[in-house]
Simulated scan of single mutants.
Amino acid sequence: MSFTSEVKKQICKEPTDRNQARAQICALFQMRASMHMNFRGMSVSYQTENATIAKHLFQMLKQVYEVNPRLSVIRNMRLKKSNMYRVEIYDKASEILDDLGILTDTGIHYKPLGRLIRSDKMARAYLCGCFLASGSINDPKTANYHLEMSTTESELAQSVQHLMERYHLPAKITKRKKYEVVYLKAGDKIADFLRLCNASQALFEFEDSRIQRDFFNQMTRLDNCEVANEMKTQKAAKKQLEAIAILEANPQKVDISEKIRHVMEIRKQFPDASMNELCEEVYRAYGDIISKSGMKHRLNRIKEMAASIQEESV
């Protein structure tokens, strides 16, 4: 089961009262339902590949509107293609759409009624319904953090975006073919959305994966930093050894103090040592206490003297 399917399964398991159920039904219908007119009158159908969502919608319709929807399975004969589950409403279809504010005397509305999202729990239920209808989340173990919900209606996408902003979820909208896609990229905000939907088990799994990934990325950055520092140290040591070789080849051209000679000897003995390690070795060999800045100054002095000899030779 995919991570998205697991999240949707957990949302469907959450109990809903009549108001929450109405908000979810509204979102599901606005996102994905179809209306039909024939000799029997108006009907509404909702089609999904997720059997849990179809069953959840079926039960909510019975709970809120006391109707008996038709639940059917459309078997896909293509190899590895999922079956489709269709929920169809014939009785009270127009009354249900009117109650949800989807179909009124002024036409079809793709923006949720204020009374359906006014309270906190109904607004959350509406967002849950939107995610059930068209949402997806990348598995945090295998991909970048990404949550999205799509619709063909621009007005509906903007409504979903504004509703998410109520919960400090900075959703953005992009166009993908005929769809308006509302999406989140930040891992912590996707976790907040899962928390909003009460998908606790999925939230724990997501946060665990996120913590492990962030820890691994941090360790990788630290390793890269250490490698870079090591390469920098080795490059600097190579130049210092080259300068020392120039000084030793031209003893008559420069006056080298005893302290500088101590540093030269230690650098030759420990070509890979860091600045702090050189300070410790100088103290161990000569009893000379030297700070890191003092060591840096003496090494720079060695390079300056070597440079002056090279200039004289040109």
Rank of each mutant, 00 (worst) to 15 (best):
S5E: 05
V7K: 03
I11D: 07
C12H: 03
P15S: 04
Q20W: 05
R22Q: 14
A27L: 09
Q30I: 14
Q30S: 06
N38E: 12
S43V: 00
S45L: 03
K55A: 15
L79K: 09
K80A: 14
R86G: 00
R86A: 06
A93M: 13
E95V: 11
D98H: 14
P112E: 00
R115T: 13
I117H: 08
A125T: 08
L127T: 00
G129I: 00
F131N: 05
F131E: 07
L132S: 07
L147E: 14
S150I: 01
T152K: 06
T152A: 06
T152Q: 08
E153Q: 07
S154C: 12
E155T: 08
S159D: 06
H168D: 14
P170I: 06
R176Y: 10
R195Y: 08
A199P: 08
A202V: 05
F206R: 05
S209E: 11
Q218I: 05
M219R: 05
E226P: 09
V227I: 11
N229Y: 09
T233C: 01
S257W: 00
V263P: 15
I266F: 05
P271K: 09
S274R: 15
M275C: 13
E277G: 09
C279S: 15
Y283T: 12
Y286E: 06
G287C: 02
H297G: 12
L299S: 05
M305P: 02
A307Y: 15
A307F: 12
S308R: 04
Q310L: 13
E311V: 01
E312Q: 11
